[in-house]
Design a protein around this nucleic acid. Structure first.
Lengths: 258, 258
DNA sequence: AAGTGGTCTAGACCACTTG
DNA sequence: AAGTGGTCTAGACCACTTT
Protein backbone atom coordinates (compact mmCIF):
# COMPACT_ATOMS: atom_id res chain seq x y z
CA UNK A 1 0.00 0.00 0.00
CA UNK A 2 1.18 3.54 -0.54
CA UNK A 3 2.98 4.41 2.63
CA UNK A 4 1.74 7.96 2.94
CA UNK A 5 -1.43 9.11 1.28
CA UNK A 6 -1.12 12.33 3.20
CA UNK A 7 2.17 14.03 2.37
CA UNK A 8 4.21 14.92 5.42
CA UNK A 9 4.85 18.45 4.20
CA UNK A 10 1.53 20.28 4.16
CA UNK A 11 2.92 22.83 1.71
CA UNK A 12 3.27 20.12 -0.93
CA UNK A 13 0.20 19.55 -3.03
CA UNK A 14 -1.45 16.19 -2.47
CA UNK A 15 -0.22 13.70 -5.02
CA UNK A 16 -2.78 11.58 -6.81
CA UNK A 17 -2.96 7.99 -5.72
CA UNK A 18 -1.21 6.62 -8.77
CA UNK A 19 1.77 8.89 -8.11
CA UNK A 20 2.09 7.54 -4.61
CA UNK A 21 1.97 4.03 -6.02
CA UNK A 22 4.60 4.98 -8.56
CA UNK A 23 6.84 6.48 -5.93
CA UNK A 24 6.56 3.38 -3.79
CA UNK A 25 7.34 1.12 -6.72
CA UNK A 26 10.31 3.25 -7.62
CA UNK A 27 11.62 3.07 -4.08
CA UNK A 28 11.31 -0.71 -4.11
CA UNK A 29 13.18 -0.83 -7.40
CA UNK A 30 15.93 1.49 -6.23
CA UNK A 31 16.33 -0.52 -3.06
CA UNK A 32 16.84 -3.58 -5.23
CA UNK A 33 13.81 -5.51 -3.99
CA UNK A 34 13.13 -6.76 -7.47
CA UNK A 35 15.94 -8.79 -9.04
CA UNK A 36 17.15 -7.78 -12.43
CA UNK A 37 16.15 -10.85 -14.37
CA UNK A 38 13.06 -11.69 -12.36
CA UNK A 39 9.53 -10.47 -12.83
CA UNK A 40 7.77 -8.17 -10.40
CA UNK A 41 4.68 -9.54 -8.68
CA UNK A 42 1.83 -9.55 -11.16
CA UNK A 43 -0.47 -6.59 -11.46
CA UNK A 44 -3.41 -8.14 -9.65
CA UNK A 45 -1.20 -9.06 -6.70
CA UNK A 46 0.45 -5.66 -6.56
CA UNK A 47 -2.85 -3.82 -6.78
CA UNK A 48 -4.43 -5.75 -3.93
CA UNK A 49 -1.24 -5.51 -1.86
CA UNK A 50 -1.22 -1.76 -2.37
CA UNK A 51 -4.97 -1.52 -1.86
CA UNK A 52 -5.61 0.22 -5.16
CA UNK A 53 -7.56 -0.80 -8.20
CA UNK A 54 -5.74 -2.49 -11.01
CA UNK A 55 -6.35 0.50 -13.25
CA UNK A 56 -4.55 2.79 -10.83
CA UNK A 57 -1.68 0.37 -10.50
CA UNK A 58 -1.39 0.19 -14.27
CA UNK A 59 -1.34 3.97 -14.48
CA UNK A 60 1.67 4.03 -12.18
CA UNK A 61 3.44 1.26 -14.04
CA UNK A 62 2.67 2.97 -17.35
CA UNK A 63 4.68 5.97 -16.29
CA UNK A 64 7.62 3.90 -15.16
CA UNK A 65 7.55 2.06 -18.46
CA UNK A 66 7.54 5.36 -20.28
CA UNK A 67 10.62 6.37 -18.36
CA UNK A 68 12.36 3.11 -19.26
CA UNK A 69 12.54 2.08 -15.62
CA UNK A 70 10.32 -0.95 -16.20
CA UNK A 71 9.47 -3.05 -19.24
CA UNK A 72 6.31 -5.05 -19.70
CA UNK A 73 6.16 -8.32 -21.58
CA UNK A 74 2.73 -9.60 -22.35
CA UNK A 75 2.21 -13.09 -21.04
CA UNK A 76 5.43 -13.02 -19.04
CA UNK A 77 5.48 -10.21 -16.57
CA UNK A 78 6.92 -6.82 -15.73
CA UNK A 79 10.66 -6.41 -15.25
CA UNK A 80 13.21 -3.85 -14.19
CA UNK A 81 14.51 -2.53 -17.49
CA UNK A 82 17.75 -4.27 -18.35
CA UNK A 83 20.49 -2.00 -19.57
CA UNK A 84 22.07 -4.34 -22.00
CA UNK A 85 20.13 -4.17 -25.20
CA UNK A 86 20.66 -2.48 -28.51
CA UNK A 87 18.05 0.10 -27.72
CA UNK A 88 20.04 1.58 -24.88
CA UNK A 89 23.30 1.11 -26.66
CA UNK A 90 22.18 3.43 -29.40
CA UNK A 91 20.23 5.68 -27.17
CA UNK A 92 23.53 6.61 -25.62
CA UNK A 93 25.98 5.97 -28.41
CA UNK A 94 25.19 8.76 -30.75
CA UNK A 95 27.87 8.68 -33.39
CA UNK A 96 27.12 7.48 -36.90
CA UNK A 97 28.91 7.35 -40.19
CA UNK A 98 27.99 10.35 -42.28
CA UNK A 99 25.63 9.23 -45.03
CA UNK A 100 27.04 9.45 -48.52
CA UNK A 101 25.40 12.51 -50.11
CA UNK A 102 25.18 10.69 -53.42
CA UNK A 103 23.21 7.82 -52.01
CA UNK A 104 21.11 9.33 -49.30
CA UNK A 105 20.44 7.16 -46.28
CA UNK A 106 21.28 3.58 -47.14
CA UNK A 107 19.47 1.00 -45.09
CA UNK A 108 22.47 0.27 -43.03
CA UNK A 109 23.03 -2.10 -40.20
CA UNK A 110 23.42 -0.21 -36.97
CA UNK A 111 26.92 -0.95 -36.00
CA UNK A 112 28.29 -1.65 -32.55
CA UNK A 113 31.53 0.11 -31.83
CA UNK A 114 34.60 -1.88 -30.87
CA UNK A 115 35.84 -0.60 -27.56
CA UNK A 116 39.43 -0.84 -26.45
CA UNK A 117 40.68 0.26 -23.05
CA UNK A 118 43.77 2.44 -23.21
CA UNK A 119 44.31 3.04 -19.54
CA UNK A 120 42.70 2.33 -16.20
CA UNK A 121 43.94 4.24 -13.19
CA UNK A 122 42.97 5.66 -9.83
CA UNK A 123 43.28 9.35 -9.30
CA UNK A 124 41.94 12.24 -7.27
CA UNK A 125 38.95 14.15 -8.58
CA UNK A 126 39.64 17.44 -10.30
CA UNK A 127 37.44 20.35 -9.22
CA UNK A 128 35.28 20.28 -12.37
CA UNK A 129 34.62 16.56 -12.17
CA UNK A 130 34.01 16.75 -8.46
CA UNK A 131 31.38 19.40 -8.87
CA UNK A 132 29.62 17.46 -11.60
CA UNK A 133 29.71 14.22 -9.63
CA UNK A 134 28.82 15.98 -6.38
CA UNK A 135 31.84 14.68 -4.54
CA UNK A 136 34.67 16.62 -2.94
CA UNK A 137 37.72 17.66 -4.98
CA UNK A 138 40.47 15.22 -4.16
CA UNK A 139 38.09 12.32 -3.50
CA UNK A 140 39.25 9.15 -5.18
CA UNK A 141 38.00 8.31 -8.64
CA UNK A 142 38.64 5.76 -11.33
CA UNK A 143 39.90 7.32 -14.53
CA UNK A 144 39.45 5.18 -17.60
CA UNK A 145 40.49 5.93 -21.15
CA UNK A 146 38.88 4.13 -24.09
CA UNK A 147 38.99 4.31 -27.83
CA UNK A 148 35.93 3.39 -29.87
CA UNK A 149 36.09 2.17 -33.43
CA UNK A 150 33.48 1.82 -36.10
CA UNK A 151 34.49 -0.34 -39.00
CA UNK A 152 38.12 -0.61 -37.81
CA UNK A 153 38.39 3.17 -37.73
CA UNK A 154 38.93 4.91 -34.40
CA UNK A 155 36.30 7.64 -34.18
CA UNK A 156 35.87 8.42 -30.49
CA UNK A 157 38.21 8.89 -27.56
CA UNK A 158 36.51 8.57 -24.18
CA UNK A 159 37.70 9.52 -20.76
CA UNK A 160 35.48 8.24 -17.97
CA UNK A 161 35.57 9.41 -14.39
CA UNK A 162 33.84 7.22 -11.82
CA UNK A 163 33.52 8.04 -8.14
CA UNK A 164 35.36 5.29 -6.30
CA UNK A 165 32.83 5.37 -3.51
CA UNK A 166 30.05 4.16 -5.80
CA UNK A 167 32.23 1.60 -7.58
CA UNK A 168 34.12 -0.10 -4.77
CA UNK A 169 36.33 -2.93 -5.96
CA UNK A 170 35.93 -2.21 -9.65
CA UNK A 171 38.93 -3.79 -11.31
CA UNK A 172 40.49 -3.27 -14.68
CA UNK A 173 39.96 -6.94 -15.45
CA UNK A 174 36.28 -6.67 -14.59
CA UNK A 175 35.92 -3.56 -16.70
CA UNK A 176 37.77 -4.86 -19.72
CA UNK A 177 36.13 -8.27 -19.69
CA UNK A 178 32.57 -7.11 -19.16
CA UNK A 179 30.07 -9.03 -21.22
CA UNK A 180 28.03 -6.06 -22.41
CA UNK A 181 28.01 -2.27 -22.26
CA UNK A 182 29.51 -0.30 -19.42
CA UNK A 183 26.04 0.78 -18.30
CA UNK A 184 24.98 -2.84 -18.11
CA UNK A 185 28.06 -3.44 -15.95
CA UNK A 186 27.12 -0.60 -13.62
CA UNK A 187 23.70 -2.14 -13.28
CA UNK A 188 24.61 -5.79 -12.87
CA UNK A 189 27.69 -5.40 -10.69
CA UNK A 190 26.94 -2.24 -8.74
CA UNK A 191 23.16 -1.93 -8.80
CA UNK A 192 23.39 1.42 -10.53
CA UNK A 193 20.89 2.02 -13.31
CA UNK A 194 21.72 4.88 -15.65
CA UNK A 195 18.46 6.53 -16.61
CA UNK A 196 19.45 9.76 -18.30
CA UNK A 197 22.46 11.68 -19.42
CA UNK A 198 23.09 15.36 -19.96
CA UNK A 199 25.52 16.30 -22.66
CA UNK A 200 27.23 19.56 -23.50
CA UNK A 201 29.14 19.65 -26.75
CA UNK A 202 31.67 22.07 -28.13
CA UNK A 203 34.11 22.23 -31.01
CA UNK A 204 37.79 22.32 -30.15
CA UNK A 205 41.10 21.79 -31.90
CA UNK A 206 42.45 18.30 -31.27
CA UNK A 207 45.30 18.17 -28.77
CA UNK A 208 48.38 16.06 -29.22
CA UNK A 209 47.40 12.94 -27.34
CA UNK A 210 43.84 12.77 -28.64
CA UNK A 211 45.00 13.46 -32.19
CA UNK A 212 47.35 10.52 -31.93
CA UNK A 213 44.59 8.18 -30.79
CA UNK A 214 42.21 9.40 -33.48
CA UNK A 215 44.86 9.34 -36.17
CA UNK A 216 44.45 12.95 -37.17
CA UNK A 217 46.65 16.03 -37.36
CA UNK A 218 46.99 18.12 -34.22
CA UNK A 219 44.62 21.08 -34.37
CA UNK A 220 41.99 19.31 -36.43
CA UNK A 221 38.47 20.39 -35.34
CA UNK A 222 36.77 17.77 -33.18
CA UNK A 223 33.63 17.68 -31.10
CA UNK A 224 34.19 17.36 -27.38
CA UNK A 225 31.15 16.06 -25.50
CA UNK A 226 30.95 16.37 -21.74
CA UNK A 227 28.45 13.85 -20.48
CA UNK A 228 27.04 13.41 -17.02
CA UNK A 229 25.16 10.15 -16.55
CA UNK A 230 22.40 10.15 -13.96
CA UNK A 231 20.45 7.58 -12.00
CA UNK A 232 17.32 7.86 -9.86
CA UNK A 233 16.64 11.29 -8.39
CA UNK A 234 19.17 12.67 -10.90
CA UNK A 235 22.10 11.48 -8.82
CA UNK A 236 25.26 11.65 -10.95
CA UNK A 237 27.21 8.43 -11.44
CA UNK A 238 29.66 8.96 -14.26
CA UNK A 239 31.41 11.89 -15.88
CA UNK A 240 32.71 11.33 -19.36
CA UNK A 241 34.51 13.42 -21.91
CA UNK A 242 34.19 12.07 -25.43
CA UNK A 243 36.22 13.45 -28.27
CA UNK A 244 34.73 12.68 -31.66
CA UNK A 245 36.42 12.59 -35.02
CA UNK A 246 33.72 14.10 -37.23
CA UNK A 247 35.67 14.02 -40.46
CA UNK A 248 33.56 11.07 -41.62
CA UNK A 249 31.04 10.65 -38.81
CA UNK A 250 28.28 12.72 -37.25
CA UNK A 251 27.13 13.29 -33.71
CA UNK A 252 23.39 12.72 -34.05
CA UNK A 253 20.35 13.61 -32.04
CA UNK A 254 16.61 13.78 -32.39
CA UNK A 255 14.65 16.56 -30.77
CA UNK A 256 11.17 16.06 -29.38
CA UNK A 257 11.21 12.35 -29.79
CA UNK A 258 7.89 10.62 -30.12
CA UNK B 1 -16.25 6.74 -35.08
CA UNK B 2 -13.09 5.07 -36.24
CA UNK B 3 -13.50 4.79 -39.96
CA UNK B 4 -12.01 1.34 -40.36
CA UNK B 5 -11.94 -1.11 -37.53
CA UNK B 6 -10.89 -3.75 -39.98
CA UNK B 7 -7.61 -2.73 -41.61
CA UNK B 8 -7.70 -2.76 -45.37
CA UNK B 9 -4.43 -4.66 -45.65
CA UNK B 10 -4.94 -8.10 -44.13
CA UNK B 11 -1.19 -8.45 -43.63
CA UNK B 12 -1.30 -5.59 -41.14
CA UNK B 13 -2.01 -6.61 -37.59
CA UNK B 14 -5.32 -5.35 -36.29
CA UNK B 15 -4.81 -2.13 -34.43
CA UNK B 16 -6.42 -1.74 -31.02
CA UNK B 17 -9.42 0.51 -30.89
CA UNK B 18 -7.65 3.36 -29.19
CA UNK B 19 -5.08 3.45 -31.98
CA UNK B 20 -7.79 3.79 -34.56
CA UNK B 21 -9.27 6.60 -32.54
CA UNK B 22 -5.84 8.21 -32.28
CA UNK B 23 -5.28 7.88 -36.01
CA UNK B 24 -8.64 9.46 -36.75
CA UNK B 25 -7.98 12.31 -34.37
CA UNK B 26 -4.59 12.87 -35.90
CA UNK B 27 -6.08 12.98 -39.38
CA UNK B 28 -8.62 15.54 -38.25
CA UNK B 29 -5.85 17.62 -36.73
CA UNK B 30 -3.64 17.40 -39.80
CA UNK B 31 -6.55 18.36 -42.00
CA UNK B 32 -6.97 21.45 -39.86
CA UNK B 33 -10.47 20.63 -38.63
CA UNK B 34 -9.61 21.97 -35.21
CA UNK B 35 -8.60 25.63 -35.12
CA UNK B 36 -5.38 26.50 -33.42
CA UNK B 37 -6.71 28.59 -30.59
CA UNK B 38 -9.98 26.73 -30.15
CA UNK B 39 -10.72 23.69 -28.05
CA UNK B 40 -11.56 20.30 -29.49
CA UNK B 41 -14.99 18.92 -28.70
CA UNK B 42 -15.02 17.71 -25.12
CA UNK B 43 -14.14 14.16 -24.28
CA UNK B 44 -17.68 12.97 -23.63
CA UNK B 45 -18.84 14.32 -26.98
CA UNK B 46 -15.91 12.85 -28.87
CA UNK B 47 -16.28 9.47 -27.24
CA UNK B 48 -19.98 9.16 -28.08
CA UNK B 49 -19.39 10.51 -31.59
CA UNK B 50 -16.70 7.90 -32.13
CA UNK B 51 -18.75 5.22 -30.41
CA UNK B 52 -16.05 4.35 -27.89
CA UNK B 53 -15.94 4.61 -24.15
CA UNK B 54 -14.47 7.69 -22.60
CA UNK B 55 -11.59 5.64 -21.24
CA UNK B 56 -10.61 4.55 -24.72
CA UNK B 57 -10.87 8.06 -26.05
CA UNK B 58 -8.67 9.30 -23.23
CA UNK B 59 -6.11 6.62 -24.00
CA UNK B 60 -5.86 7.92 -27.56
CA UNK B 61 -5.66 11.54 -26.46
CA UNK B 62 -3.05 10.60 -23.84
CA UNK B 63 -0.73 9.42 -26.57
CA UNK B 64 -1.20 12.54 -28.66
CA UNK B 65 -0.51 14.65 -25.60
CA UNK B 66 2.65 12.68 -24.96
CA UNK B 67 3.76 13.41 -28.49
CA UNK B 68 3.09 17.13 -28.01
CA UNK B 69 0.40 17.10 -30.68
CA UNK B 70 -2.32 18.06 -28.22
CA UNK B 71 -2.33 19.78 -24.86
CA UNK B 72 -4.96 19.38 -22.18
CA UNK B 73 -6.01 22.12 -19.82
CA UNK B 74 -8.12 21.07 -16.93
CA UNK B 75 -11.35 22.97 -16.78
CA UNK B 76 -10.84 24.49 -20.22
CA UNK B 77 -10.45 21.84 -22.87
CA UNK B 78 -8.04 20.07 -25.18
CA UNK B 79 -6.15 22.03 -27.83
CA UNK B 80 -3.84 21.53 -30.75
CA UNK B 81 -0.43 22.20 -29.27
CA UNK B 82 0.58 25.77 -30.05
CA UNK B 83 4.11 26.20 -31.21
CA UNK B 84 4.80 29.52 -29.65
CA UNK B 85 5.77 28.94 -26.09
CA UNK B 86 9.00 28.85 -24.20
CA UNK B 87 8.89 25.11 -23.96
CA UNK B 88 9.22 24.61 -27.68
CA UNK B 89 11.59 27.46 -28.06
CA UNK B 90 14.08 25.75 -25.85
CA UNK B 91 13.25 22.30 -27.01
CA UNK B 92 14.65 23.33 -30.35
CA UNK B 93 17.09 26.05 -29.43
CA UNK B 94 19.81 24.09 -27.81
CA UNK B 95 22.65 26.50 -27.27
CA UNK B 96 23.50 27.76 -23.81
CA UNK B 97 26.23 29.80 -22.24
CA UNK B 98 28.88 27.54 -20.79
CA UNK B 99 28.52 27.52 -17.01
CA UNK B 100 31.38 29.09 -15.13
CA UNK B 101 33.47 26.22 -13.71
CA UNK B 102 34.04 28.20 -10.52
CA UNK B 103 30.38 28.68 -9.81
CA UNK B 104 28.73 25.57 -11.08
CA UNK B 105 25.27 25.95 -12.55
CA UNK B 106 23.91 29.28 -11.48
CA UNK B 107 20.15 29.53 -11.40
CA UNK B 108 20.06 31.47 -14.58
CA UNK B 109 17.20 32.89 -16.52
CA UNK B 110 16.74 31.01 -19.76
CA UNK B 111 17.53 33.55 -22.36
CA UNK B 112 15.79 34.10 -25.66
CA UNK B 113 18.16 34.73 -28.51
CA UNK B 114 17.91 37.90 -30.55
CA UNK B 115 17.45 36.95 -34.16
CA UNK B 116 18.50 39.16 -37.05
CA UNK B 117 17.88 38.32 -40.68
CA UNK B 118 20.96 38.73 -42.86
CA UNK B 119 19.50 37.73 -46.19
CA UNK B 120 16.29 36.43 -47.71
CA UNK B 121 16.43 35.07 -51.25
CA UNK B 122 14.91 32.62 -53.65
CA UNK B 123 17.11 29.96 -55.13
CA UNK B 124 17.11 26.52 -56.64
CA UNK B 125 17.56 23.52 -54.35
CA UNK B 126 21.00 21.98 -54.20
CA UNK B 127 21.14 18.17 -54.48
CA UNK B 128 21.80 17.62 -50.77
CA UNK B 129 18.96 19.87 -49.66
CA UNK B 130 16.63 18.43 -52.25
CA UNK B 131 17.23 14.92 -51.05
CA UNK B 132 16.66 15.87 -47.44
CA UNK B 133 13.49 17.83 -48.24
CA UNK B 134 12.29 15.18 -50.70
CA UNK B 135 11.94 17.62 -53.57
CA UNK B 136 13.73 17.63 -56.92
CA UNK B 137 17.11 19.30 -57.30
CA UNK B 138 16.48 22.64 -58.94
CA UNK B 139 13.03 23.07 -57.40
CA UNK B 140 12.56 26.53 -55.98
CA UNK B 141 13.37 27.20 -52.35
CA UNK B 142 13.63 30.11 -50.00
CA UNK B 143 17.10 30.58 -48.60
CA UNK B 144 17.27 32.60 -45.42
CA UNK B 145 20.32 33.59 -43.42
CA UNK B 146 20.03 34.61 -39.78
CA UNK B 147 22.33 35.44 -36.94
CA UNK B 148 21.36 34.67 -33.37
CA UNK B 149 22.72 36.51 -30.38
CA UNK B 150 22.70 35.76 -26.70
CA UNK B 151 23.49 38.68 -24.49
CA UNK B 152 24.50 40.91 -27.44
CA UNK B 153 27.01 38.32 -28.57
CA UNK B 154 26.47 36.58 -31.92
CA UNK B 155 26.73 32.85 -31.24
CA UNK B 156 24.91 31.11 -34.08
CA UNK B 157 24.72 31.55 -37.82
CA UNK B 158 21.70 29.86 -39.42
CA UNK B 159 20.98 29.09 -43.00
CA UNK B 160 17.40 27.93 -43.59
CA UNK B 161 16.15 26.26 -46.73
CA UNK B 162 12.37 26.12 -47.19
CA UNK B 163 10.63 24.41 -50.08
CA UNK B 164 8.74 27.14 -51.92
CA UNK B 165 5.89 24.77 -52.69
CA UNK B 166 5.01 24.45 -48.99
CA UNK B 167 5.53 28.15 -48.23
CA UNK B 168 3.81 29.91 -51.14
CA UNK B 169 3.79 33.68 -50.77
CA UNK B 170 6.16 33.78 -47.83
CA UNK B 171 7.64 37.28 -47.87
CA UNK B 172 10.71 38.71 -46.25
CA UNK B 173 8.54 41.25 -44.48
CA UNK B 174 6.33 38.50 -43.10
CA UNK B 175 9.35 36.49 -41.99
CA UNK B 176 11.20 39.36 -40.37
CA UNK B 177 8.16 40.81 -38.63
CA UNK B 178 6.77 37.56 -37.28
CA UNK B 179 5.44 37.87 -33.77
CA UNK B 180 7.00 34.69 -32.39
CA UNK B 181 9.34 31.87 -33.40
CA UNK B 182 9.72 30.68 -36.96
CA UNK B 183 8.00 27.41 -36.10
CA UNK B 184 5.04 29.33 -34.76
CA UNK B 185 5.00 31.20 -38.08
CA UNK B 186 4.97 27.97 -40.04
CA UNK B 187 2.04 26.83 -37.96
CA UNK B 188 -0.07 29.97 -37.93
CA UNK B 189 0.50 31.11 -41.49
CA UNK B 190 1.03 27.84 -43.36
CA UNK B 191 -0.68 25.22 -41.20
CA UNK B 192 2.58 23.36 -40.80
CA UNK B 193 3.30 22.01 -37.33
CA UNK B 194 6.89 21.03 -36.68
CA UNK B 195 6.83 17.99 -34.43
CA UNK B 196 10.36 16.69 -34.49
CA UNK B 197 13.80 17.47 -35.80
CA UNK B 198 16.77 15.31 -36.63
CA UNK B 199 20.16 16.82 -36.15
CA UNK B 200 23.60 15.75 -37.26
CA UNK B 201 26.50 17.72 -35.83
CA UNK B 202 30.14 17.89 -36.80
CA UNK B 203 33.14 20.03 -36.00
CA UNK B 204 34.59 22.12 -38.80
CA UNK B 205 36.95 25.04 -39.21
CA UNK B 206 35.03 28.29 -39.63
CA UNK B 207 34.98 29.60 -43.19
CA UNK B 208 35.49 33.22 -44.11
CA UNK B 209 31.89 34.40 -44.25
CA UNK B 210 30.71 32.57 -41.15
CA UNK B 211 33.78 33.68 -39.22
CA UNK B 212 32.95 37.26 -40.06
CA UNK B 213 29.38 36.91 -38.80
CA UNK B 214 30.49 35.17 -35.62
CA UNK B 215 33.35 37.57 -35.04
CA UNK B 216 36.04 34.91 -34.86
CA UNK B 217 39.24 34.11 -36.72
CA UNK B 218 38.94 32.05 -39.88
CA UNK B 219 39.70 28.40 -39.14
CA UNK B 220 38.41 28.50 -35.58
CA UNK B 221 36.68 25.22 -34.69
CA UNK B 222 32.90 25.51 -34.74
CA UNK B 223 30.04 23.07 -34.56
CA UNK B 224 27.98 22.75 -37.69
CA UNK B 225 24.52 21.31 -37.11
CA UNK B 226 22.45 20.02 -40.01
CA UNK B 227 18.84 19.96 -38.95
CA UNK B 228 15.85 18.54 -40.74
CA UNK B 229 12.53 19.59 -39.23
CA UNK B 230 9.63 17.19 -39.67
CA UNK B 231 5.88 17.36 -39.44
CA UNK B 232 3.23 14.62 -39.39
CA UNK B 233 4.22 11.32 -40.98
CA UNK B 234 7.83 12.54 -40.81
CA UNK B 235 7.38 14.77 -43.81
CA UNK B 236 10.32 17.18 -44.03
CA UNK B 237 9.56 20.89 -43.93
CA UNK B 238 12.77 22.75 -43.30
CA UNK B 239 16.45 22.14 -43.75
CA UNK B 240 18.77 24.23 -41.64
CA UNK B 241 22.49 24.49 -41.21
CA UNK B 242 23.47 26.13 -37.94
CA UNK B 243 27.03 27.11 -37.22
CA UNK B 244 27.71 27.56 -33.54
CA UNK B 245 30.47 29.50 -31.86
CA UNK B 246 31.31 27.23 -28.94
CA UNK B 247 34.10 29.30 -27.51
CA UNK B 248 31.83 30.40 -24.68
CA UNK B 249 28.64 28.40 -25.31
CA UNK B 250 27.67 24.74 -25.45
CA UNK B 251 25.42 22.75 -27.69
CA UNK B 252 23.33 20.85 -25.15
CA UNK B 253 21.18 17.78 -25.20
CA UNK B 254 19.58 15.35 -22.82
CA UNK B 255 19.42 11.67 -23.63
CA UNK B 256 16.50 9.51 -22.60
CA UNK B 257 14.37 12.34 -21.38
CA UNK B 258 11.74 11.55 -18.83
C1' DA C 1 -4.93 -24.99 -18.82
C1' DA C 2 -3.07 -21.50 -16.14
C1' DG C 3 -0.84 -17.19 -15.67
C1' DT C 4 0.58 -12.87 -17.42
C1' DG C 5 -0.12 -8.23 -19.39
C1' DG C 6 -3.40 -5.48 -22.92
C1' DT C 7 -7.86 -3.57 -24.12
C1' DC C 8 -12.35 -1.81 -23.25
C1' DT C 9 -16.30 -0.53 -20.77
C1' DA C 10 -19.59 2.33 -17.60
C1' DG C 11 -19.95 5.10 -14.13
C1' DA C 12 -18.77 7.87 -9.82
C1' DC C 13 -16.56 11.57 -8.01
C1' DC C 14 -12.86 15.37 -7.77
C1' DA C 15 -10.38 19.77 -9.32
C1' DC C 16 -10.10 23.53 -12.09
C1' DT C 17 -12.04 27.40 -15.06
C1' DT C 18 -15.52 30.36 -16.49
C1' DG C 19 -19.80 32.96 -16.27
C1' DA D 1 -23.71 26.62 -11.42
C1' DA D 2 -22.16 24.56 -15.44
C1' DG D 3 -18.64 22.71 -18.20
C1' DT D 4 -14.14 20.90 -18.73
C1' DG D 5 -10.41 17.52 -17.92
C1' DG D 6 -8.29 14.28 -13.94
C1' DT D 7 -8.67 10.33 -10.91
C1' DC D 8 -10.33 5.97 -9.41
C1' DT D 9 -12.96 1.89 -9.39
C1' DA D 10 -14.65 -3.04 -10.64
C1' DG D 11 -15.07 -6.13 -13.82
C1' DA D 12 -15.21 -8.47 -18.52
C1' DC D 13 -12.80 -10.21 -22.09
C1' DC D 14 -8.62 -10.70 -25.34
C1' DA D 15 -3.68 -11.99 -26.64
C1' DC D 16 0.47 -13.88 -25.53
C1' DT D 17 3.65 -17.22 -23.01
C1' DT D 18 4.59 -21.14 -20.45
C1' DT D 19 3.53 -25.70 -18.50
Amino acid sequence: MPTAKIPSDPVQKALPLYRLVKRDLQQMIEAGHYGIGKALPNEATLSTAMKVSIGTLRHAVDELVHEHVLVRRQGKGTFVAPHNNARFMFQFFQVEPRPDPEEGHPIRELEYPDIACISFTRDKAQPTEARALRIRPGDQVFRIENKLSLNKQVVVHDQLTLPLAKFRNLSEHQFVNRSSTVYALYQSDFGITVLRAQERARAVAAGRSVARVLGMPVGCPVIEVHRLALTFADKPVEYRISTIDTRAHDYVSVLSKK
